[in-house]
Amino acid sequence: MDALVVGTIIKIVLVLLIVSALAGFGTYIERKVLAFMQRRLGPAHVGPFGLLQIAADGIKLFTKEDIIPQHANKFIFSLAPVITAATAFIALSAVPLFPTFVIPESLPLIGGAIVPSIIADVNIGVLFVLGMMAAGLYGPLLAGMAQANKWGILGSARTAVQFLSYEVVTGLSVLAPIMVVGSLSLLDFNNAQTGGVGSWLIWQQPIAFILFLIAGFAETNRTPFDLLEHEAEIISGYVTEYSGLRWGMFFIGEYANMFTISILAAVIFCGGYGDIGFVPGWLALLLKVTFFFFLMLWVRASWPHIRPDQLMWLCWKVLMPLAVINIVITGIVVMI
């Protein structure tokens, strides 16, 4: 086997493990940040600063009874969480995560393997990630339809409406930067913004950036738009009947999607992993992703939910026209 295949397999395993662990860590960070913003403490008793709460929650999830409702379609019911988790991780496969590096020869078995920056270096990375996230809507959709529960059905109806509508906005908002850069590859996006903070696309495309963030919130089911499982209205939406590990897989998928959107926002609009002054590139990317992740929690602590009709209003009457106008103006400017 050649060095790249081994390296790719190593990278796949690394991404799976790290992102799954980060999903757990993300819940901890979310609880802590929300707590601080509400003048509370958050998890504090299990381990130092409550850090082992993740382990406790993990053990709880793994050992909980796996309940499948009597009238549910058992096969689809157990398939749906897998779809959510799988599509989230497949989307991550086209995203640059760490710099490329070679494992030193001295190590047995895997010595000399080249671990690539991107697992699947397709030259249309942006579209691939968006497409995979679009396919991810089947998780909530099938989950809601298979569980023979009214709240589940409502949740999956909302899934279909919300994801379909906001896919349009995501696609259109990314189109303008694509026209500026002239490529669909995330590497080209990164290379187009190497000239320091001033060359970031966010200064050329501020409207596209804001639209992308809003649509990203909607596609990852984060708070101002988390109508899919809005407790006050539809119990838990599509996860109403889920328990234990299956529920946990939905969670991991959601957090993996949050990371994907954060990385996309950082790479497309905020200079990717280019160095900022003395800050090395990998740290810069990490800081940007952390900021976007924090922004999601921050917004959750600050803003209320919106109604479904407001969601549709926002998408079709505000965001989509804005995105189209932005594309037209960008097109004219690029042509000139």
Binding site: F128, G131, L137, A160, L164
Partner: peptide
């Protein structure tokens, strides 16, 4: 194919 058929057309069927 992914975006149009899987993401949009089939999702509308599902709806």
């Amino acid at each position: 194919q992914l975006i149009v058929y899987v993401g949009a057309v089939m999702a509308l069927y599902a709806f």
